[in-house]
Design a protein around this nucleic acid. Sequence first.
DNA 1: TATAAACCTGAGTAAAATAGTCAAGTATAT
DNA 2: ATATACTTGACTATTTTACTCAGGTTTATA
Lengths: 141, 141
Amino acid sequence: MKLTSKGRYAVMALVDLARFDNINPVSLRDISLRQGISLDYLEQIFSKLRKKEIVQSIRGTQGGYILKRKAKEIKLTNIFDAVDEKVKTVQCKKESKKGCNGKSTKCLTHNLWDELENHINNFFEEKSLEDLVKDNSERRI
Amino acid sequence: MKLTSKGRYAVMALVDLARFDNINPVSLRDISLRQGISLDYLEQIFSKLRKKEIVQSIRGTQGGYILKRKAKEIKLTNIFDAVDEKVKTVQCKKESKKGCNGKSTKCLTHNLWDELENHINNFFEEKSLEDLVKDNSERRI
DNA sequence: TATAAACCTGAGTAAAATAGTCAAGTATAT
DNA sequence: ATATACTTGACTATTTTACTCAGGTTTATA
Ligand code: FES
Ligand code: FES
């Protein structure tokens, strides 16, 4: 079970962006330099974040990105959802009555993985971008 | 973030095995048929489980595997550890003072991922094989 | 109005991880 | 003897990841 770079970078970039929230748009180039993430890769990620209305883009010179919603209202779960970093523990289709083994009942471990999925998602639903920015500025004092 | 087949199968196979605990050794062939897991793959998995003393093998005809420890004392975390299904959220080496970005401080999200890792591992440390077997037999009543 | 900064889009690709298979054994109950 | 079942190690196809690359378009500003 591991976190992918895409998810990790998305959050990292947004924390960076959120720290300058509403002062100026932040260019991907700056984020790229500060956080050591490839610019081209960031563009892919921000394209998805924009489509899910987490950030807003401002084109042209002096352009960049700003948050579209308040940092408090952006949960980790929204970010992960936007970049397709999904938690997948069960093998079967949840809606189907069939199990992952192809049989007509769910497998011996289905409930367990379902519980695990909820356990992890709870964590993501609780954390907001604001929390992350705060945690970070506290560390710096 | 997803669970691999190896981890999923390891737990599934052990729940199957634990249900017959100490009556008879259970052959991998039987588990393979009941759970729909390739026999060859099961062999790989049980080789690891044996090395970590979670199961014990009995060779020859009528042979198979039995649990080496009590089901109550086998936690999910032990199983996952045995088959190298590890939870990996941070990118950097935890011991190192360097960050995942190559800089001399930890990145903006390091603490977050560390918390997440603990959150997930807590789940694995709480659940024992006994719990899983019970959950399952209850469902059947 | 020329220019450069910055966003935008889609395709392509190398490397890594996963999910197995395959082959050739050894041990033991019957 | 023989069939059942564990043991071991190598090998491979597929999928996923983590990017790169090549072209755009928009807009502030000199
Ligand atoms: S994971 Fe859902 S049936 Fe096995
Ligand atoms: S994950 Fe540890 S420094 Fe970034």
